[in-house]
């Protein structure tokens, strides 16, 4: 019998705490696969955010640190500057990266830190109970936008990747999605490229944004959540390479 698919070693053999239909599991697997394929497991250090992925070190079998909300790019700066031979990645949600950590991601990109950023955009705060995120869609109902998000009151969905693409210090930015197999494959390709740039010592920050489902706080079944990414989210967050 021929093995056509198996768990990659850097992904631990355990059950995650993520909700059914959550996209984090897919994103974790892709990161683990890329690390193993590039053979960088022994020199990779990962940074877990505050958010649903705070326990990422329970699933990814590399050296990892969990840090204050929003600060992964600053922590990554401290790590990479003192360890230029190591591969440093941060794994951040939309609240962490686009709200409380907006200054840190902007300035890490601005300084052109040689790090890889994985940005999971699910348009909501998951861990704290489904509150509005900077990337929450207009009319989307959340715990803190009970009548749906109103642009004039709570602001419009923040397109951080587009913003970061304007900085000379960023070298590669791509928005992907994990809502179907074809897009998952594209996401992995993008992640691989982002890590490769760092392995090759390219001068600047690379970032892969992944639109990811949160069926629980989107208040819809998992299959519907995947369709919502395809039909609604990609209108506001168009997929594709923004830079590099």
């Amino acid at each position: 019998m021929k093995t056509v698919f198996k768990r990659t070693p850097t992904l631990k053999d355990c059950v995650t705490h993520y909700c059914p239909g959550c996209g984090h599991g897919i994103a974790h697997r892709l990161v683990a696969e890329v690390i193993d394929e590039l053979g960088i497991h022994d020199r990779t250090i990962g940074i877990a955010p505050v958010g649903c992925a705070v326990l990422a070190y329970d699933y990814l079998d590399v050296d990892m640190v969990e840090v204050a909300h929003g600060r992964p790019p600053a922590v990554a700066t401290g790590m990479k500057r003192t360890n230029p031979d190591k591969i440093i990645f941060s794994y951040q949600g939309d609240g962490d990266l686009a709200s409380i950590g907006a200054a840190e991601i902007l300035h890490a990109g601005h300084r052109g830190e040689q790090i890889t950023v994985i940005f999971i955009n699910n348009a909501v705060y998951g861990m704290t109970g489904g509150q509005m995120a900077p990337t929450t869609m207009i009319d989307q109902v959340t715990a803190t936008t009970p009548r749906g998000r109103v642009g004039a009151e709570q602001g419009y969905p923040l397109q951080v990747s587009e913003l970061l693409a304007t900085l000379p210090g960023t070298i590669y930015i791509e928005r992907c999605s994990v809502h179907d197999p074809a897009h998952i494959r594209k996401s992995k390709k993008a992640l691989r490229h982002a890590f490769e740039l760092q392995v090759d010592g390219a001068q600047g920050m690379s970032l892969v944004e992944m639109l990811s489902p949160c069926p629980v706080y989107w208040r819809m079944p998992p299959a519907k959540a995947m369709e919502w990414i395809e039909n609604e989210m990609t209108k506001v967050f168009p997929l594709g390479r923004l830079k590099g």
Binding site: V67, R71, G78
Partner: peptide, 8 residues
């Protein structure tokens, strides 16, 4: 936070 990163 950078201190934290380097120290880690």
């Amino acid at each position: 936070s950078m201190v934290f990163g380097a120290s880690a």
